[in-house]
Simulated assay, not measured.
Amino acid sequence: MDPVKLNDICIIQSQGQINITAYEPTIVAFEIPETLLGVLPLLISCYDSLLFKKIWKKTGSMLLTNKNRRLTIEEVFSEIWKPSYEQWKLLQEKLIKGRIQLSEYDEFFQNTQIEELRRECNLLGEKNGNTDWIEQRLAELEQYKFILRCSSAANLIHEIVTVYGITGNFKDIQNILELVKHTEAFFVKVDATSEVYRTLSSVDYLHEDCLKAFIECKELIEWIRETMK
């Protein structure tokens, strides 16, 4: 690091004007624009939000990648803070009104634990003075996680049906796959107690590995079928 003079980063007063033992210099290593100083309290409060932090980090990472250099304070303010804050406010409104799209849920909440989601919703509800929507939204988010788990098994079953040319009524499987395919759609309510959902939700990672192995062993299975006729 290049040597830096003290008076380059501090406002220095003459010794005759100060008490040396009690003196605290004023740091001026860099100047912060007044516009940025004005939003710092708001930025600090926003950083309590898990959603805002995810948006902030994503926006900042994309900007750093595009510019491939250190950002200026003005760029942080205009190209990270402003778009992050606007997107955060928009997603807040969608979350409250139940208009968040499945693609947005996938991007921001899919790997978030329910208690973290509850904390995020409570934080938003307290700021807006309305918490009536929270339990319904958490239930919708949990149900979508449930549908995603079921769709993983449904996708494997669909692949088995295709690979082995199995015939029959697989409409329920197809409907589940259609649900997760339309990522621009909003939440839909499904009957989690129905037989198809109960069966698919019971498929764990070990079962999925077995289904994958069954798909990969098609040639062997076909050979066994032929030789045992």
Rank of each mutant, 00 (worst) to 15 (best):
F30V: 05
S49L: 11
K57I: 14
Y85E: 02
E24R: 05
S45T: 09
Y85D: 01
T112P: 03
N111K: 14
L117H: 13
S49C: 12
G129P: 02
K89S: 01
K127H: 09
L51H: 08
L138W: 08
P25F: 08
E93H: 07
I44N: 11
K82M: 00
F109W: 15
P33G: 07
Q92P: 04
S45P: 00
R119G: 12
A29I: 07
P25W: 06
E93L: 05
I96L: 02
G129N: 00
E79N: 06
L124E: 02
I134E: 05
W56R: 01
K97A: 02
Y105T: 03
K94E: 15
Y105H: 04
E93C: 00
L95A: 14
R137C: 00
C46K: 13
R69L: 13
K57C: 14
C46Q: 10
W81C: 04
F30C: 06
E34T: 09
F52G: 02
D48V: 08
F52I: 04
F109R: 07
R99C: 09
P41E: 10
E120L: 08
P83N: 04
K82R: 06
G129S: 03
E126A: 07
L42K: 11
K67V: 12
E86W: 01
D106E: 15
V76W: 11
R99P: 06
G129V: 00
D132F: 04
S84T: 02
L64H: 12
K82I: 04
C121S: 13
Q110D: 07
E107M: 14
L124P: 00
E74W: 11
T131P: 00
T112M: 05
P25N: 05
Q87F: 05
S45R: 09
T59Y: 04
K67E: 15
N130R: 02
I32N: 07
T112K: 03
T112C: 04
R70S: 15
S103K: 14
I44W: 11
E31H: 10
Q101P: 09
K58R: 15
L138D: 08
